[in-house]
Every structure is written in structure tokens, then in C-alpha cells.
Simulated assay, not measured.
Amino acid sequence: MAKRKEESNSVLPEDILAKLKETKNELLKEEQRLSEEKEAQRLFERKEREKNLSFAELLERHGDQGNKF
């Protein structure tokens, strides 16, 4: 019953309303995709920075946590 009230109170035609909802869903998907890409880029850059660290910097960062042979 609440759904009928919502439809009758709408000023926009149904086709325009459907198109707006579709556009909203597309924008949400695009936003999520961009967020995932940004996170992947951040992780890649972090790995690249760690790859370029010197032994002294790695030792300072991680301490003497390695296994002794």
C-alpha cells in the first residue's frame, strides 16, 4: 500500500523515473570500480616502495624478526 502512495505522489513519468534509477545504479557501480582501482594502485605503489628499500631500511622497519638458520 505504501508503494502505491509513493507512485501516485511522483511528479515524474515512470519511464523517466526508471531511467534515473538506472543512471543512479550505473554511477554507484562506476564509483565502486574507481574505488577498487584506487585501492589496487595504492597497494601496487606500496609494494614498489618496499621493493626499493635498502637492507638497512628494511631492518629498521621490521627489526630482527627473521628466523635464524
Rank of each mutant, 00 (worst) to 15 (best):
D64C: 04
H62Y: 14
K38V: 02
L28N: 13
K51A: 12
N67A: 15
G63L: 00
K29Q: 08
L12T: 14
L58F: 03
R61E: 04
E26I: 07
E45M: 04
E14M: 09
S35P: 02
M1P: 03
R33F: 01
F69M: 15
Q41V: 04
E48S: 10
L12F: 09
G66D: 08
L59W: 05
A56Q: 11
G63N: 00
L20M: 05
L20N: 06
N52G: 12
G63K: 00
A56F: 05
D64Y: 06
L17H: 11
K3A: 14
L28S: 12
R46I: 09
N67S: 15
K24Y: 11
E37K: 00
K3T: 14
K3D: 15
F44Q: 15
K29F: 04
K68C: 14
F44D: 06
A56M: 11
E14K: 15
E22D: 09
E22R: 04
R42W: 02
K24V: 15
F55H: 11
R33P: 01
Q32A: 10
S8D: 09
Q41E: 04
K29C: 02
K38D: 11
F44G: 10
R46D: 13
L43Y: 01
E6R: 13
Q65M: 06
Q41T: 15
A2D: 14
E7R: 13
R4W: 05
L53N: 05
V11N: 09
F69C: 10
D15Q: 09
F55E: 11
N25S: 07
K51W: 13
E37H: 00
E22C: 05
R49K: 15
S10W: 00
R46T: 13
D64S: 03
E22Q: 09
S54P: 02
D15E: 11
S54N: 01
S35D: 03
K29G: 04
K5Y: 08
E6G: 07
L53P: 01
N52S: 11
E31H: 03
E60I: 06
Q65K: 08
N25I: 11
A40D: 01
K3C: 10
E31A: 05
G63I: 00
T23E: 14
A18Y: 07
H62Q: 06
E60G: 05
R49L: 12
K21Q: 12
Q41R: 11
E36L: 05
L34F: 03
D15R: 07
L43W: 02
K51I: 04
N25T: 12
R49Y: 10
S54E: 01
K24S: 13
E48R: 11
I16L: 10
E39Q: 09
P13H: 06
E60M: 07
N52D: 13
E39C: 03
K51S: 08
K51C: 06
K38Q: 13
R61Q: 09
L27T: 08
E14A: 14
S10C: 05
A2S: 13
S54W: 01
K5W: 10
R42T: 00
D64M: 06
L34Q: 01
L28F: 14
K21Y: 06
L28Q: 15
